[in-house]
């Protein structure tokens, strides 16, 4: 900490993570028009799954392989949870009044949080130190304008970037990606051309959950612990990022996430008030809603209530 360039590096790292989580919000919002309040929990569960995997089975493996497998495992666990949410808590409410799925989502958010609390205990779960010691070594980092980019920060930025590029290509060019865009725009018509809506929506949840899981593992490695309460604040920030960029808009979520991370880090750097960093992001949310409610890249989307 201290220098401006360090603040930028830290902000960028955090921003990448916000962006990954924000993508899940924005994709679900785009396709169902609802805020998946439980998405933060999916991220948190991903972090737990990664840390648990390394603690239980990481022992005999080499570090990169163990980390890779941990990410895959957490993707699996989070996706199952995300798919379960869609299947049991949201799908029955797809044609219900707008409030119903939101309330269901809040309920599921609380329930998931509590279920992690009950099964994982009251203390934050440490990310196994062995697997992160090389990654967080600032000595091994790259010096940039007086700041240091640690290997883990570099990894977070690279992985996030690759995932975002991959997602963009998928949505733009794959058959499923096009079907997702078609479904987001006109669900009934998508059905009329033969798209299986349920499958598309389920896939959306799975992809969003997978991205959140990767974010969860990376953050728990970064801050060295994961806690059952972590999902809620991360979710709130990521949602802010999604609104910032323009809800429902995939590149918007990416831009919004990165900018929010930078604003937070620079705000703390400028004021020195690290306690208030969460207040900054809320301030951003309010300002965006006041002056640019459709977000930076938001299109004029028809009200879908």
């Amino acid at each position: 900490m201290g220098t401006l360039s360090q603040a930028v590096i830290n902000g960028l790292t955090l921003g990448m993570v916000y962006a990954l989580i924000a993508l899940g919000y924005t994709m679900v919002y785009g396709i169902l028009g609802m805020i998946n309040f439980a998405h933060g929990e999916i991220y948190m569960i991903g972090g737990y799954a990664g840390a648990t995997f390394l603690g239980l089975w990481g022992g005999g493996l080499s570090v990169p392989i163990a980390l890779g497998l941990a990410v895959l495992f957490s993707i699996l666990v989070s996706s199952l949870h995300g798919a379960g949410l869609e299947r049991f808590a949201y799908r029955p409410l797809r044609n219900a009044p707008a409030l119903a799925p939101l309330i269901s989502a809040i309920g599921m958010s609380i329930a998931l949080q509590q279920y992690v609390f009950l099964t994982q205990g009251t203390t934050p779960k440490p990310f196994p130190q062995f697997f992160r010691q090389d990654l967080v070594a600032y000595e091994a980092g790259i010096k940039l304008f007086g700041g240091t980019l640690s290997p883990l920060q570099g990894l977070i930025i690279i992985i996030s970037t690759l995932l975002m590029i991959g997602l963009s290509l998928f949505v733009r060019h794959s058959k499923m990606g096009k079907a997702m865009r078609a479904t987001a725009e006109d669900r009934r018509m998508a059905g009329l051309v033969g798209i299986d809506i349920n499958r598309v929506i389920l896939t959306t949840f799975v992809i969003g959950s997978a991205l959140a899981a990767v974010a969860g593992v990376m953050v728990s490695a970064y801050i060295s612990t994961i806690f059952y309460r972590d999902g809620y604040l991360a979710g709130l920030k990521a949602f802010t990022a999604a609104v910032f960029g323009g809800i429902g808009n995939i590149p918007g979520a990416m831009v919004g996430g990165v900018l929010l991370g930078l604003i937070e880090a620079l705000g703390v750097w400028a004021t020195g008030a690290s306690d208030w960093k969460d207040v900054f992001s809320f301030g951003v949310l309010i300002l965006v809603l006041l002056f640019k409610p459709r977000g930076l890249l938001g299109e004029v989307v028809a009200e879908k209530v």
């Binding site: 309330i103 269901s104 309920g107 609380i110 329930a111 509590q114 009950l118």
Partner: peptide, 18 residues
């Protein structure tokens, strides 16, 4: 289990008796 129950109840309520 209170909060677990409350959370599940909210979702269930919306589905079966909104």
């Amino acid at each position: 289990y209170k909060w677990l129950a409350i959370g599940l109840l909210m979702a269930l309520m919306m589905i079966i008796r909104p």
